[in-house]
């Protein structure tokens, strides 16, 4: 079963890549080949950096909030987070710019913040949802709190955590074209310039490439989740 999943992912990525090359070769997108590749590189670096940090910190804070010491405050803090999710990502980028100026750093920080919340939330909820009887059994077997977190709580919450990561990456990639507005570069440059200059091929070059990146990222997260999530935990796999 697992081999099939990897294989289909490989086929999928390959066909996406070939489609991309074909678009560059046979359509007017080709005119912007150099720009596309340069900006795509920038775009990917931005997305990967901001989401990796978001995943690391998101899980860290989510775990921290789920600890018994914080159990009283955790709900209030989560309420605060839930409210802040309603802030539009563009506003977050604007705020980031007002503190950090323009360029790569405020772009990554803005994306990081926009991405962080769903991961914290799902990590917290996922760990809290692990059945108390399992934790009691683990305690009864003489595992210490750290071992229980690492071997029982996180692995069993992983399905929910990965759902959060998936949402977060989707938000990240959806927001990434906007960072052009605060001087962060990336494929947004082609889209916004295309709109401003009313050049359809330029706009499409940016939009199509962004879209393909998003689809690829989504598939990648899915495949990673099947690697990390134990078959015994995932509700979809049998």
């Amino acid at each position: 079963m697992k081999m099939n999943k990897y294989f289909s992912f490989l086929i999928f990525s390959l066909s996406l890549f070939i489609a991309f090359l074909a678009l560059l070769e046979y359509t007017s997108m080709g005119e912007y080949e150099e720009d596309i590749l340069y900006l795509l590189n920038e775009h990917i670096i931005m997305v990967v950096t901001s989401s990796s940090f978001a995943i690391i910190f998101g899980i860290f804070f989510g775990v921290l909030l789920s600890r018994p010491i914080l159990s009283k405050q955790a709900e209030n803090i989560m309420q605060l987070f839930n409210m802040s999710v309603t802030i539009p990502t563009l506003a977050i980028l604007a705020l980031s710019m007002s503190f950090l100026g323009i360029g790569f750093l405020p772009a990554v920080v803005g994306l990081f913040i926009a991405t962080l919340l769903p991961i914290i939330k799902n990590t917290f909820v996922g760990i809290n949802a692990v059945s108390p009887s399992i934790i009691e059994a683990a305690h009864g077997m003489g595992m210490n709190s750290f071992q229980i977190l690492l071997k029982v709580e996180i692995p069993n919450a992983l399905y929910v955590i990965f759902a959060g990561i998936k949402t977060a990456v989707a938000i990240n990639i959806g927001t990434a074209p906007l960072v052009f507005l605060i001087g962060g570069g990336g494929l947004g440059e082609l889209i916004f310039s295309g709109i401003d200059l009313d050049i359809m091929p330029m706009l499409l070059a940016g939009a199509i490439t962004t879209g393909m990146t998003a689809i690829f990222a989504d598939k990648l997260v899915s495949v990673l989740s099947t690697i990390f999530i134990s078959r015994g935990v995932s509700p979809t796999e049998d």
């Binding site: 059945s131 077997m141 692995p155 015994g232």
Partner: peptide, 14 residues
């Protein structure tokens, strides 16, 4: 000490 509980408490991830 061996410990068995009513809800069994097997670890689903293992």
């Amino acid at each position: 000490i061996g410990y068995v509980i009513q809800q069994i408490g097997l670890f689903p991830n293992m």
